[in-house]
């Protein structure tokens, strides 16, 4: 039986959720939902930085990745097509 600490469980769970949200962002045809999924991935990445004791990078990631990038991408999606063509 391998022994595994709570810290490693948290890291593994966050890795799984990050990969899952990144794959879902590619898989969606609705680009608005895809942008929201990217924001979720960025938020989990910010949590990952905080758990790895880099709060500076966590604040920067939460501000730029989860707020500003999402705003700019939503503006772009609203100005162009919402649905991705096959």
């Amino acid at each position: 039986m391998i022994e595994i600490s709570l810290f490693e469980i948290a890291l593994i769970l966050m890795s799984v959720f990050m990969i899952a949200s990144a794959i879902i962002a590619v898989w969606f045809k609705d680009l608005l939902a895809s942008v929201i999924t990217l924001a979720v991935m960025s938020l989990i990445l910010s949590l990952y930085f905080y758990v790895l004791q880099a709060p500076d990078v966590a604040i920067a990631e939460a501000g730029v990745g989860a707020a500003l990038t999402t705003a700019i991408l939503i503006i772009t999606v609203r100005a162009t097509e919402r649905m991705e063509e096959d």
Binding site: P55, D56, I59, A60, G63, V64, A67, L68, A71
Partner: peptide
């Protein structure tokens, strides 16, 4: 925190 982080929060 610092200048860049606070500036990103203000811009949001």
């Amino acid at each position: 925190g610092g200048g860049f982080q606070g500036g990103a929060v203000g811009a949001s």
